[in-house]
Amino acid sequence: MAFDASTDASDEVLMVLYANGDRHAALALTQRVTPRVLAYATRMLNGDRAEAEDVAQETMLRLWRMAPEWRQGETKVTTWAYRVATNLCIDRQRSRKRKAQTALDDAPDLAASGRSADGTLIQADRMAALGQALGQLPDRQRQAVVLRHIEGLTNPEIAEVMQIGVEAVESLTARGKRALAALLSGQKDALGYKDERDDD
């Protein structure tokens, strides 16, 4: 029986099949889980793709090693993977902070980037602006906002990933969004909102 990322089998079933030596399950899990972990790690690490790939590969390695002992019904595979990736990202962020220069210092300043004042940023630039603003949030707020509003997890799932209560998740998400709005408010024109409304 061949699987791919679109198979109806749940991640948990695929884990059991993988542990039983099913190579198609290995392929399906790789295609299904890896892109999500990589995207999350990329946002958590301020867009550092190389480092995000290291985190995603290490997360998947731990998943493969965990498979023979996987117990169904205790946690979702993606929730487990997000939790591992979160811890790996935190370790790397701490390592960065110990260095003289942080990634934030290296990031280009949008306000001083010399883009034309009347031009609307293309989608990639909007995402870059969002990524930079996310990078300025405290770690826990960034995790909560990314998991909730970009990765689409529910609050209980985020609570399991971050190993905190659901109320704490709600608080972190709300504070994170307020901080994000404040950080991006100075770039409203640059983000293209004014121009889009003028066009309507």
Binding site: R23, T34, P35, A39, E53, A56, Q57, M60, E151
Partner: peptide, 25 residues
């Protein structure tokens, strides 16, 4: 941002799959 998830490169996916097959019981 949720709709524009960056796609992993084929080379990276191949590395992850190679790990999976190497560690598979």
């Amino acid at each position: 941002a949720a709709r524009t998830r960056p796609d992993p490169s084929p080379a990276f996916m191949d590395r992850v799959l190679a790990d999976a097959l190497a560690l598979q019981p």
